[in-house]
Design a protein around this nucleic acid. Structure first.
Lengths: 197, 197
DNA sequence: CGCGTGATTGAAACCCTTCAAGTTTAGTGG
DNA sequence: CCACTAAACTTGAAGGGTTTCAATCACGCG
């Protein structure tokens, strides 16, 4: 489950071995308890977070006070308001811990230095951003064209363990439906599977 | 209306004057007539397109053959399947010309060279990607939380001239509603405005 | 003129929400 | 470890927004 930043640098980003120690010197680690907050709307997002262990949620409130979950970030994922971070502007988003979580904090300065030190890190950072775009585009396609049931099935496929780790109302808020709506979708799927099995 | 790639490099990207000629040497210009195709699903997107004049549409078909417009690209916008382009993979998307259009073709090789030649270009390229992310996030927020009417009003605000340039059914497919749905939204808004004026 | 495409309108159907209960589950203090 | 409470989940009924289907209207173009 756990996947440290060091492992990430070595195995995923394939950072040059001689650079790994240099990069690790530059980061801070922080632990937060379940329910604690890492970013709130109105503040500038000062870090990109790498999740070593635990689970974070990236979300926002609309003007009626209703929550919308934008992203779940389990182990080995990055999160943060990349836009507010990049443009140095107050964020519209919140980040909370759904479980006790250990994160690595990446500052603007860190990313500057790490991309200078390591071409592999620079490339992987670019890859991450491209991947993020791909993820967002898929989400838009689903929201435009798929029913609540289809979106739920896709979610289960993409995040198989999230059902066990996040409450259902958060998942509903990710899918863009109400908790009651999700409850019904699940019941209907259960009935279908019962009939066909 | 028209905004050439040269003007873009100079005024928007603020490319170093001595680099502009070098960069311009590396690009090709292409013209397409209304209705012609620049990219189709299944093929690898070989170019990022800069629109000097005209209007392009970036869209996809779902499995039922229904079209969904992902993005409109008028003058001075970039388009292309950045993901397929970056990962060198077949695209899921199509790009068609809605009007007679003149585009500048940017290859992978070009972007590599231009970012080497000009730090300003590299920065602006990164800025574009970040901006793209911002745009996608806003679209997701709207799709999750806003009604068809709210999405339409936001669209009119963002693309004021698109109503005159693109047929209504394309706009509907961008908003994630049916052409009939959009027609009704427009009628209801017209009735409201009539009452309050 | 006649054809095709796009826009509009009406009626019925459908998906999902809202509101208002209940039921279950999880956490807390005794 | 149990009892209590709050939060999460489920369920039903009614309602709203949007789609679907079908018909009609409007317009540009060969």
């Amino acid at each position: 489950m756990e996947f440290t930043f060091q492992q990430f640098l070595k195995e995923k980003a394939k950072v040059e071995p001689e650079s790994i120690a240099k990069i690790l010197e530059l980061v801070q680690v922080k632990t937060v308890k379940k329910g604690e907050n890492l970013l709130e709307a109105g503040k500038v997002c000062e870090y990109i977070y790498y999740v070593e262990e635990g689970l974070l949620r990236f979300f926002l409130f609309n003007e009626d006070g209703v929550e919308y979950t934008v992203q779940f970030s389990p182990e080995s994922w990055f999160t943060g308001d990349r836009n507010g971070f990049y443009f140095n502007q107050p964020s519209h988003y919140h980040i909370d811990a759904i479980e006790d979580t250990r994160v690595v904090l990446l500052t603007r300065d860190f990313i500057q230095k790490a991309t200078d030190i390591s071409p592999a890190f620079r490339h992987y950072n670019e890859f991450l951003l491209q991947n993020h775009v791909r993820h967002l585009q898929k989400r838009i396609s689903l929201l435009i064209s798929a029913s609540a049931e289809e979106r739920y099935l896709d979610f289960v496929n993409t995040y198989p363990d999230m059902l066990l780790r996040a409450p259902q109302w958060m998942i509903a808020s990710y899918l863009g439906i109400t908790p009651q709506g999700l409850s019904r979708v699940r019941r209907e799927l259960a009935e279908k599977n019962f009939k066909t099995s």
